[in-house]
Design a protein around this nucleic acid. Structure first.
Lengths: 140, 140
DNA sequence: GTTCGTGCAAACGATTTGCATTACT
DNA sequence: AGTAATGCAAATCGTTTGCACGAAC
C-alpha cells in the first residue's frame, strides 16, 4: 500500500511542527502523486498555498527525511518521496522526460563498483542524461 | 599534448563562425584551464568580455561539440572541454576524494539500461557519491 | 499568549533576450 | 556592404527572504 498523507503529517507532528491547511494539502498532493516528479511550482498550482509556502514546506519535509529533491539538467528541481524506489533517473536531453533507472541495472552497477574498488555508493539520487527510446527513434 | 586555443578557434572557423577578440580570449581561457570546472561567471571575470557574450560563446562551442556543461547540484553550470569529459567519478562523501568509476562497470550499466529501456545514455560526466574503501573501513 | 506558518512582494543568482552599435569577413 | 557578434540593460526563471498578519498550540 502506498504512503498516505497522514503518514507524512504525523512525521511532521512528531518533529513538533504545526499542522496547517497548506501542509495538509501539500502532503496529500505528494502522497497521491507519489512516483511522479513534482516541482514546487506544479504543487503550488494544484494546492491552495503560495509558492514560497510550498518551498518552505518541501524544505521542512526534506529535513524530516520524508522527501528528497534532485536537479535534473536545466529547469526546476523535482521533489519526490524519499521512500520511492526510483531515486535514479534517466533524463532525456531532447524531450526532458525522466524515467526511472531500472533497479537491476543500478544494483549491478553498485555491485560491480564495490567488487572492483571497495567503494560503496550511497547516493540516493543521481541522473544520467541521454536519449530516450522515443527521441532516439525520431532522431534520424 | 593538450588542446590549444587555436584548435578551438579553428573548429569555430570551420563552422563559419567569426573569430572575435572575445572568442579568442574565451578559447584561450578554456584551453589553458582545461580539466577545471569553469563557470560562465568565472570566465567573464578573467577575460575582457561581457557575461552574456561568454554565455553565447559557450553555447556556440557546445553546439560545435567542443565543450560541454553539467549542472552540479545548486549553483551555476560548469563548462569543460568535451574531450576532458570522459570521466565518471566516485566521490567520497566523507573525505571528498574522487576516484574513477571503472570503465567496465560503466559500460555494463549503459548496456543494461539500453537493453531494458531503450534509453541511450550519452552523459560522459557524472558522479556517484558514497563511501570510499578507506572511509568505509574507518567507519565503525 | 506565544510562537510558528503564511502571503505578499521584493531580492536574489543564473541565464536569456531585445536592440542599437561595432566589427568580422 | 552585409551580416554576425557584442555590450548593455531589461526580462526571465527558479528560489529565497523580510516582514507584518493570522493561526496552531
Amino acid at each position: 500500500m502506498h504512503i498516505t498523507a497522514d503518514t507524512l503529517l504525523n512525521a511532521l507532528r512528531s518533529q513538533g511542527m504545526r499542522i496547517t491547511d497548506a501542509r495538509i494539502q501539500i502532503c496529500e498532493e505528494i502522497a497521491e502523486r507519489h512516483g511522479e516528479h513534482l516541482t514546487a511550482t506544479a504543487i503550488s498550482e494544484t494546492v491552495d498555498a503560495n509558492e514560497s509556502t510550498v518551498y518552505r514546506t518541501l524544505e521542512v519535509l526534506e529535513q524530516a527525511g520524508i522527501v528528497e529533491h534532485s536537479h535534473m539538467g536545466h529547469g526546476p528541481a523535482v521533489y519526490h518521496l524519499a521512500e520511492d524506489s526510483d531515486h535514479h533517473h534517466l533524463v532525456c536531453e531532447r524531450c526532458g522526460r525522466a524515467e526511472a533507472l531500472p533497479a537491476a541495472a543500478y544494483e549491478a552497477l553498485v555491485a560491480g563498483i564495490t567488487a572492483e574498488t571497495g567503494f560503496v555508493p550511497t547516493s540516493r539520487h543521481f541522473a544520467l542524461t541521454g536519449l530516450c527510446s522515443r527521441c532516439k527513434a525520431e532522431n534520424t
